[in-house]
Design a protein around this nucleic acid. Structure first.
Lengths: 196, 196
DNA sequence: ATTGTATGCGAGCGATGACTCGTGTCAGCA
DNA sequence: TGCTGACACGAGTCATCGCTCGCATACAAT
């Protein structure tokens, strides 16, 4: 039974439930998340939870959505900021911003990337990726001469996927590569692929 | 109760169970896989299944292991074959081989990559990655002059992760990029990153 | 044949957890 | 103050599943 909150207290409740879901995911992990546990963590009864979420999946979706909205905000803002710069002047700060954003919530990122099946969030993840691919594609289209006969959309697809994955894995696996070295490598990777 | 099969028929049973697990994963998906269902699919009783597998997870592990052994075999063989070639002469056939191997079993790849939580197979996946990173790292170390001050191990980490992820996503998402174009892009990506 | 052992069976136990529903409470309004 | 509908509660229902155990059967050795 999906209701639209009409009173203030119920809107607070939705917030508390999302917050609790986040806490349970980080503290107990994805497998241990039950609607009963989320309700308990939120100090709310299971029945109340189901007044605002149709099922368990919807709760998780809401938690993930809140996180990825914040992330999307930061990334696209950072990208848009430097869309007029060229080459490394644009690439390096963007990668730094991405790494910062991911590291800030590394524990939750681990849950999303390693514990939740990818398919569960495919729609949300892909929407975010599509949005960034669009941005980067437009950027590349504006400087098409650089690319030879590579299509901008293709180049954007490759770049965005690669950078996203590499940064996420770097943050989660903490390989024995100093951050500075890692960033430089990514910049080199991008620069080699998009010659100017 | 993990038993070591002593008679021929029981060895056949283990094989049938693994085969059934594979079939259930592909046909019904990860969430729908129960030990009872696997047993039924194998034409075997649940009790018998537990004579050879300590728990459900072990069954899945065995199924995944069989798949990733085949994959590892093909990739490392292909890599080793061309370890003496230089530049694109080595890179392109390797990527082609990787794409071939992934496409051959795309349905099962989807289950592994999109439905099973990554953490479930981290040990197996990482072992495979480590092995390939080792191979590539050794290759790069042998031609260290090319890399400037980038450490071979770092370059290998970046390359292997990037190529693996991009090829998997390409196979699973079937973006509107022709295969030939995609391969050329990956070759360009590698060539740009590892100048010679 | 007979006995001992390995193998196989499948009904069912025990626990879990998503979700419901009957009951109670609170806020706002006349 | 009494009424009404939104809101909240939480014990309980119902189905699912991982896993066990007592028994049956096939096989090998003697």
């Amino acid at each position: 039974m999906k209701k639209i909150p009409q009173q203030e207290r119920s809107r607070q409740m939705v917030g508390r439930i999302i917050e609790a879901g986040h806490a349970v995911l980080v503290r107990d992990g994805y497998d241990a998340l039950s609607t009963n546990r989320v309700a308990a963590e939120a100090g709310v009864s299971p029945g109340s939870l189901y007044q605002y979420f149709p099922n368990k999946e919807a709760v998780i979706e809401a938690v993930v959505e809140r996180y990825s909205d914040v992330l999307a905000e930061r990334i696209t803002a950072s990208l848009a900021d430097r869309i007029d710069d060229a080459g490394p002047a644009m690439v390096r700060p963007t990668i730094e911003a991405l790494l910062d954003a991911l590291e800030e919530n590394a524990e939750f990122l681990r849950v999303i990337a390693d514990e939740i099946p990818r398919a569960e969030n495919s729609s949300r993840t892909e929407a975010l990726e599509q949005r960034i691919v669009g941005l980067v594609g437009a950027y590349l289209a504006a400087r098409r001469a650089d690319l030879g006969d590579t299509r901008p959309s293709t180049a954007a697809w490759v770049m965005v996927r690669a950078i996203e994955h590499l940064t996420v894995r770097y943050v989660l696996e903490h390989p024995t590569i100093p951050r500075e070295e890692f960033v430089s490598e990514l910049v080199r990777l991008v620069a080699g692929y998009l010659p100017d």
